Simulated scan of single mutants.
Amino acid sequence: MNLRQIETFAAVMRCGTASRAAETLGVTQPAVSRTLAELERSVGFALFARIRNRLVPTPEARLLYQDVEAAFQGIDTIRASAARIRDQGSGELRVASLSALGGSLVPRAIAAFRKAHPAVRVTLLVLSSREVRDLVASGQFDVGLAADEIDVTGVTHQAFLTRDALCAVPVGHPLADRAVVTSADLHGMPFVAYVPEDRSRQRLDSLLAAENVVPEIVVETIYASTLHALVAQGVGVGLISAAAAEGLDGSRVVLRPFAPAVPIRSLLILPSDRPKSEIVRDFIDALMAAR
């Protein structure tokens, strides 16, 4: 028994005659008759009674046809699924992002992506860069955005975004009137810093040490949104990327250029053990456009 024989049998059952089935299949009527004879030998029982040049299905044929129809419905389901995956993707996209981009750039990319893929369900988690890396490396998430201090073992990575840090100061703070805040301005100043393992914090520490500038670090945090909220409360000043500040309430925070420049870099990371799906490729395009 093979698929050609099953398709011929189903065509005869649907069409009622061998000649119509032959037209449907694009073959000759003798070919249909030979294929039916082969199938009957294969299954071991008669499928049709030949009555007055007509093929009349036997009770056994009707029973068999029920299962054939069920099988063809399954094939139709598979075809529909394949078409849906081709046109809309796998139906789910899992994204993890560091805080600095998770409240602004990534939502903007998701909005653009959803216009092209309205049926794809997106999961977005905003986490520490280390947690983002672990979720992507384990294959639990499809795409990650993380700071450049992460261990890139086990992930495919590329540079995503580099922006010079801005100085965030509370409204009414003396530094709010400066056109540019300099490193010297931070000496003795209450300062909200990222944790020591943060790469941009390390760059700032090196710069300040070279200039003998010692700010008063009052709070350390891993999240840009937390740093911004602390500055808004007047706890101190801090450095933040423009991308991170974009999605936050700026009514109580003033952003000023900072010199010398302290770059804040992020990476786009993917699982290293599997190829990118079409929806992942499309989402990466949306991320690149959102930059």
Rank of each mutant, 00 (worst) to 15 (best):
L161D: 03
E40W: 09
D134S: 15
R94I: 14
T24C: 09
R14L: 08
I264P: 00
L105I: 08
L287I: 14
S251I: 08
L248V: 10
F9P: 06
L270G: 01
T77A: 12
Y65T: 01
R121W: 04
A244G: 08
T58Q: 02
A112D: 04
I284A: 04
L125C: 04
L239G: 01
E60Q: 15
A61Q: 07
A176K: 11
T58V: 03
I240E: 05
R163H: 09
V192C: 11
T182I: 03
L64K: 07
S104P: 13
E38I: 07
E131F: 01
V68N: 10
A290I: 00
D164V: 03
L166K: 04
S206I: 14
D151F: 05
P275E: 15
A49V: 08
S81M: 09
I264V: 12
S19F: 07
Q29W: 13
I75L: 15
A245V: 07
D185K: 05
R252V: 11
D205P: 02
H173R: 03
I240M: 05
A109D: 03
P107G: 07
S241I: 02
E211A: 10
L63Y: 14
A242K: 09
L135K: 13
S200H: 09
I217K: 02
T58F: 07
G172R: 01
T182W: 10
G102E: 05
H228M: 15
A80W: 05
R79Q: 07
R203S: 09
R4S: 10
E60C: 11
N212K: 08
A224S: 14
E92N: 13
I284H: 02
V152W: 09
D198R: 10
A179L: 13
T8K: 07
P190T: 01
I279G: 00
P30Y: 10
I51Q: 07
R121G: 01
S241W: 00
G44E: 01
R121N: 01
V262H: 11
A31Y: 11
A232C: 05
E7A: 08
A80N: 14
H228A: 07
N2Y: 06
V253R: 09
L101I: 14
V155A: 11
S129I: 14
A11R: 05
R265C: 09
V181R: 05
A286G: 01
F160N: 02
A10V: 12
D198H: 05
P271Q: 09
L101E: 04
G238V: 03
A49M: 11
G26F: 00
S206C: 05
D134T: 06
V120M: 02
A210L: 10
V152N: 11
E220M: 15
R199P: 04
P215Q: 01
L166N: 05
P257V: 12
A210H: 12
A116W: 02
D76L: 15
L268H: 15
L267T: 04
I264H: 09
L175F: 12
A184I: 15
I279V: 13
D164R: 12
M189L: 13
V12W: 00
F160E: 03
M189G: 08
V95A: 00
G102Y: 01
I240P: 03
A146S: 06
A286K: 00
A232E: 04
A224N: 02
V219K: 11
A31R: 12
Y194H: 14
C167L: 00
D67A: 13
L36K: 06
P190G: 14
R108K: 10
